[in-house]
């Protein structure tokens, strides 16, 4: 598939495919080197030492690595955003370690770096608080929000888990951030973001909240979150500042336009719904069965994986690791959104 994308007439798709080939080659070479010379592997990470966190304060600028304000083991201070970034990245580490025996993003104890109070330039040469959070390939960056529509992004454990899962994916499937592979990239970040929150709160699937980013939005009657995994398209409706949630919940409504990298945050509603349906149908803790199936799928998918590839793998893993009943639940959920395996 990557070979086909490299030949694409769309320059953006072609460039992304070429980058994927380069990254895959680099990762293969890095793996081979580490296997051959494990003692020589650079110790830029806190390898094999467990959890290691560093928090930077951008101090309302766009300089992400501005000032280090907290390191692993240091006491909490008075800055709520610093404490949230520290605590929630720690919760994310603990979740991956205890449920999947994964040692940080790279499974080798990579330091979790966060930058808080990130701002963006205004037109007067100053800065305004950023209404966003992102993963830049090395660290998580969190804005404080404008206080009108958005609160600070560190406030939500599932947002922090979402961003860190982008990091996990960069060391695993590394799904290309465009079209269906990109929507799966967003999907896995939502899945593990919400699972981390449910695990932390010990919420069972049937009674859990399936909304991403509730705390990030300033409350209003027209909004209850950024995405609703169980009911895509319903997180906000006719909101004067946000409009209406564009996420589809069925393949018939798949977005194919140019915006949002061909709909990576839009079409993730389809597999998100599948996961929420599977978890609620199976009952119990979503991270025990559904979470395990999706974690192994995330590790096995290739960078060009499409929805149908994800569907096939989840059905196959459900059957081989758990049994016919679980396989049927997963298969039926994909059928509900218009994908028959």
């Amino acid at each position: 598939m990557t070979d086909q994308l490299v030949q694409s007439s769309n320059p953006e798709v072609r460039a992304r495919a070429l980058a994927t080939v380069k990254i895959s080659s680099a990762l293969r070479a890095e793996r081979q080197f580490s296997q051959a010379f494990p003692s020589l592997r650079a110790h830029s990470f806190a390898a094999e030492q467990g959890k290691d966190r560093v928090i930077y304060d951008a101090r309302q600028t766009d300089r992400l690595k501005n000032v280090i304000v907290r390191r692993e083991g240091q006491e909490a201070g008075n800055d709520v955003a610093v404490n949230e970034a520290y605590d929630y990245s720690g919760d994310t580490y603990d979740f991956y370690e205890s449920i999947f025996q994964r040692n940080s993003l790279d499974d080798r104890g990579m330091t979790l770096i966060s930058a808080v109070h990130v701002a963006e330039p205004d037109y007067r040469g100053g800065f305004v608080p950023m209404n966003n959070a992102f993963w830049n390939g090395e660290l998580m960056a969190y804005g404080d929000g404008d206080g009108i529509i958005f609160n600070r992004f560190t406030q939500s454990l599932d947002v922090v888990g979402h961003e860190l899962t982008h990091g996990v994916q960069s060391f695993t499937s590394n799904l290309t951030y465009y079209g269906q592979p990109g929507a799966l990239n967003e999907h896995f970040s939502d899945v593990f973001g919400i699972l981390i929150r449910q695990w932390k709160k010990q919420e069972e699937a049937k009674t859990a909240n399936w909304t991403i980013g509730s705390e990030v939005l300033v409350p209003a009657a027209t909004r209850h979150g950024i995405r609703d995994m169980l009911n895509p398209g319903k997180a906000y409706v006719d909101d004067p500042d946000l409009g209406t949630d564009p996420q589809p919940g069925h393949m018939n409504d798949l977005y194919t336009g140019p915006y949002d990298n061909n709909g990576v945050h839009i079409n993730s509603g389809i597999p998100n719904r599948v996961f929420a349906l599977v978890a609620t149908e199976l009952g119990g803790n979503a991270w025990d069965v559904a979470g395990r199936i999706w974690y192994d799928t995330m590790l096995q998918l290739t960078s060009s994986g499409q929805f149908k590839d994800c569907a096939k793998l989840t059905v196959q893993i459900a059957g081989s690791q758990f049994g016919e009943a679980e396989k049927k639940v997963v298969s039926n959920a994909w059928k509900t959104v218009g994908l028959t395996i």
């Binding site: 320059p11 953006e12 072609r14 460039a15 992304r16 070429l18 980058a19 994927t20 966003n132 959070a133 992102f134 993963w135 830049n136 390939g137 090395e138 961003e163 982008h166 960069s170 951030y177 990239n185 970040s189 915006y259 949002d260 990298n261 945050h265």
Partner: peptide
């Protein structure tokens, strides 16, 4: 701008 396939996730276009 040249296409820039970066590692950034959740950035704006």
């Amino acid at each position: 701008a040249e296409p820039n396939p970066s590692a950034m996730r959740d950035g704006y276009q």
